[in-house]
Write a protein that binds this DNA or RNA. Structure first.
Length: 347
DNA sequence: TAACCGTGGCT
DNA sequence: TAGCCAAGGTT
């Protein structure tokens, strides 16, 4: 039996029932694919339901403010996905009259869509035989064929794409693509794969040579940068505060945060007050207290943020324009969101 | 092209 | 615990 037939046979018996598998509407498939990039199904599912309800068509998404989209994306991470999603929704609605492009070569031109996502949409929605290569596919193919080329090397990316493309079932490419991904997610798992009950056990090179634990091979480990964040949580006597939108290239672009003083190490109150940024912001008298006695370590994929929240009580401030009761309207990072959950509001 | 971009679950 | 990894893409 051919590889794709055996795979689809497994899939029809074991596939998960997921809301985006009830449709071939490219808008919904696109939405689900963007949300699931580097994201587990269990984490993305609620966001998918929320987005499809709030934005049932690409026009609804296009009409929303970017800040609204980011607020709904809050907690899902990789926020450039949300910004690109919104940008592309506006492009499709306004320039293409709402008609989603229907070929791989057109789809991949869209902002936020790369080889994987274009292949997924083209195959699932338009029956085009373009093979997806995601983390699951790398794992299944590297094990089945015993390939030790690093999956994040230039040659590895080309090699696995070519193999995936050679294996695709051209009569049902969308089903094939979802089958190999579900197989990787549920059966040929990173840890403790179910080799004992595997339909490919008699032809899997890694299983035969006892290399399942060694594959796939991945090069290089990321370096984690340590940063020290001091957020100034301002409370004026008329219950207002300050939030700034993060701009520029770094993390959390487009999200809001309290005024931030970044330091080289953990600092105490004396060092905080001596900082020029602090004196610029608060020329008048203030009462300062540290909200978290232990530093909060917020871990991003490339950074560890050692964080202190300083509560600053002061008289009315001209640039403190945000009422505490409206603060939940702003999209904020989980680090800030967790603080707000924990912080006892006085009004 | 290597570095960067979030969050959460698992071992 | 600390590291890995998850339906990747951009610069």
């Amino acid at each position: 039996m051919k590889f794709h037939n055996k795979l689809i046979y497994w899939y029809l018996q074991n596939k998960r029932t997921l809301p985006w598998r009830q449709t071939k509407n490219p808008y919904f498939i696109w939405l689900s694919e963007i949300m699931l990039q580097q994201t587990r199904v269990t984490q993305g599912l609620g966001y998918y339901l929320k987005f499809t309800e709030a934005f049932p068509t690409v026009f609804n998404l296009a009409k929303a403010n970017e800040s609204t989209v980011l607020k709904m994306w809050q907690g899902l991470g990789y926020y450039s996905r949300a910004r690109n999603l919104h940008y592309t929704a506006k492009y499709i609605a306004n320039e293409l009259n709402g008609k989603f492009p229907s070929t791989f070569l057109e789809i991949i031109k869209l902002k936020g869509i790369g080889d994987y996502t274009a292949s997924a949409i083209a195959s699932i929605c338009f029956n085009e035989p373009t093979a997806v290569v995601d983390g699951n596919v790398y794992r299944v193919l590297s094990r089945y064929f015993g390939i030790s080329t690093p999956i994040n090397s230039t040659t590895g990316i080309k090699e696995f794409k070519a193999i995936a493309q050679s294996l695709i079932d051209k009569s049902q490419p969308g089903t094939y693509n979802q089958a190999i991904m579900d197989f990787g997610a549920l059966h040929c798992k990173p840890q403790n794969p179910l080799c004992d009950s595997c339909p490919f056990a008699n032809s899997c090179v890694a299983f035969e040579k006892n290399l399942v634990k060694e594959l796939p091979v991945k090069k290089k480990k990321i370096k984690v940068r340590k940063r020290y964040f001091n957020f100034l949580v301002i409370q004026t006597n008329d219950y207002k505060t300050i939030l700034y939108e993060r701009e520029g290239k770094g993390i959390w672009q487009g999200l809001y945060q309290f005024p931030l003083i970044e330091s080289e190490k953990i600092i105490d109150k004396k060092e905080l007050i001596a900082n020029k940024k602090f004196t610029d912001l608060f020329p008048d008298e203030t009462t300062i207290s540290l909200h978290n006695k232990k530093q909060i370590v917020h871990k991003l994929s490339h950074q560890h943020l050692y964080t202190q929240f300083w509560i600053v009580e002061t008289a009315s401030l001209k640039n403190a324009t945000i009422s505490w009761k409206n603060i939940q309207e702003f999209p904020v990072p989980v680090l800030i969101s967790n603080f707000l959950e924990d912080f006892p509001l006085k009004n």
